[in-house]
Design a protein around this nucleic acid. Structure first.
Lengths: 348, 348
DNA sequence: CTGGCCAACTAGAGCGCGCTAGTAGCGTGC
DNA sequence: GCACGCTACTAGCGCGCTCTAGTTGGCCAG
């Protein structure tokens, strides 16, 4: 005798089984396959039948089951996105990825890394859900792991350039952005320009390097000063406090991103310093806060929509084109001058 | 003759099929069922076999397939979380939900609503992935829809109190928080206190009501003034500008949340006003920026960890306990006094 | 020696879909 | 008249797992 399955699955609070394709097919008087055709939007059903099936499905409250779909399909048509919830720029990116993926007929699955929840774990979760490609927003993992990952799965790194790994890269030309910012500061007459570093956060290494290069190019190698930090308001504020404590206030600060710049400005304000009267501040990202700040923040704009567009395109083209090699897209950033930068103070 | 499946599924960039339980079983010389038992951590395998299976799985790089698992299981043990990426408080909550769910053996699936991507769509996505319960962070949908949803699926609303719908509610005692804030302001001698509203954003209605009640209770019914807004920095700044334009500056402003308060403070600063010298500002949430602000923000603290804990507990208990009715948890907020509030200016 | 019990393990249906191979029915051209 | 093509539809396997209902073998009591 056939074994009977006792526990029924997927019941609502009334104990009703949730309807499946078979239910719709039975009620519409057609085969399951035809319902499948209709729901996939494929050719092969007359418009009359199509409408009837959709009507019946609606009556029953039928919704396709992603789990079953994922399992049965040759291609899951799902992109996994890894982000850090607390990075507003990641939110901008993730939001831009959505419509871009939809346009190409792909679904999105989100996973987050947070303190206590490692990036690897989040990636494993995405892969276990059959994501065909991964879009990693500012991944923190080492390039060895990412290389391994990139060979298993189509992988795109956004906002952090991964060298020597089998992954697509999409990022802005950090060096170019920093150079614009530095030229702007140097043009105003600043010499004692400090860089508040972003530590291991995405883009930081490139920005730091570009700062150093710009200083040297202008014969200011001796003035190079990098204050350690991270891409958070807290770190920016801490950096400001440490500069104040050391009584070595520069005339200008180039922050690793807007959040750090925001922290800097807040701490300077607390100390009674005027921006840009006493010290100029430049950020990076052009987050939505930059133009709201009491003193509008001069910053380097990155365009999340275009970054997202390239990321999705790279992923999809590599999934669909046979044997396409990983590529790199480098977008041009643009300096946005607002009120947080001005002439150096007199005593300097 | 049996039809042959041509397209193989889930291949890596080398064209290798990803290993399944059957592969592990074959290599370890056991049945698939036993591998399943081991990976589910159930009793019924000797520790020697257990270790061997895990070793073989590791050698092959086997990872369980969530899609298949979801499909086969009686209970998916998956909670769907809906959030707004751009709300930092949602990020705090979502981050706190994760470990709480894990502790109870549940998985998390994230979905976001964004401009252009409706909440319903996000919810449908979660349901299609077989989430057993939904944890909605500040849901924006109407109670009719949420009621319908709550009867189909175990649903918890966090941060927004939904009345008359079959859902669990977890939120702070908004009235109590606002009352504390108002008592603080009134105690300082403020009378002309304006509320900058959060519009339809979560918690706004309760906060607005509590503001009105507090004003009336102190015989200040005539002074009640609600400036429309939203829970964003932009809206706060706009509200500040409109107050300045009307030349009717209150002595204190109670904002709907910290983001709005931040916008207010920035706009006031731009206008050359001193906080709290010219105007006091109170926020809501106690986001991590509150204590970094140039002038520390007086605000009402909500504890995201405790909110998350209750939300997960409600969901899980209702899933596992038969016929448990939806409940409500109301957590006590706490006023945190910092530097953004002080005595009313003299002319008032 | 027999029977019973338990721990360790296996067989195989089925979750809800996608997809290939097939069929039925109906013009259409010669 | 028949071959042909085309549209509209169906049959049924298999995706990788879970889970019920077994089976097997070893050990011990009677």
């Amino acid at each position: 005798m056939a074994p009977l399955r006792v526990g029924w699955q997927q019941v609502d609070t009334y104990g009703n089984r949730r309807p499946t394709m078979a239910d719709v097919a039975a009620r519409a008087g057609v085969s399951r396959a035809l319902v499948s055709i209709v729901f996939r939007g494929e050719a092969g059903a007359s418009s009359a039948t199509r409408e009837r099936i959709l009507r019946v499905a609606d009556e029953l409250g039928y919704r396709p089951d992603s789990a079953a779909r994922l399992l049965a399909r040759d291609h899951s048509r799902t992109l996994g996105v890894l982000l850090t919830l607390h990075q507003p720029f990641d939110a901008d990116l993730a939001e831009a990825v959505h419509p871009e993926a939809e346009k190409r007929g792909y679904d999105i699955l989100l996973a987050t890394n947070a303190p206590g929840r490692s990036e690897r774990k989040a990636v494993e979760a995405l892969l276990s859900h059959r994501c065909e490609a991964l879009i990693l927003l500012g991944p923190g993992s080492g390039s060895t792991y990412l290389d391994e990952l990139g060979r298993r799965t189509v992988t795109v790194s956004v906002g952090r350039r991964i060298t020597g790994a089998h992954v697509d890269n999409v990022h802005t030309a950090e060096a170019k952005g920093v150079r614009q910012a530095m030229d702007h500061l140097l043009g105003l007459g600043h010499r004692r320009i400090v860089h508040v570093d972003g530590g291991r956060d995405p883009g930081s290494a490139e920005r730091r390097r570009a700062y150093r290069a710009a200083m040297r190019r202008h014969g200011l190698g001796d003035e190079i000063r990098v204050v350690p930090g991270r891409q958070t308001e807290e770190a920016g504020a801490a950096a400001a406090r440490s500069m104040l404590a050391e009584r070595r206030l520069p005339t200008a600060v180039l922050a690793s991103n807007d959040r750090s710049a925001l922290g800097l400005m807040m701490a300077f304000a607390r100390a009674g310093l005027d921006v840009p009267g006493d010290v100029s501040v430049v950020g990076y990202d052009d987050s939505h806060l930059s133009h709201l700040m009491p003193v509008g923040l001069t910053t380097v704009r990155q365009d999340p929509a275009r970054l997202a567009e390239h990321a999705v395109r790279f992923a999809v083209e590599r999934l669909e084109g046979e044997g396409v090699a990983p590529r790199e897209a480098v977008l041009d950033p643009k300096l946005v001058v607002r009120a947080s930068t001005g002439l150096p103070r007199d005593d300097a």
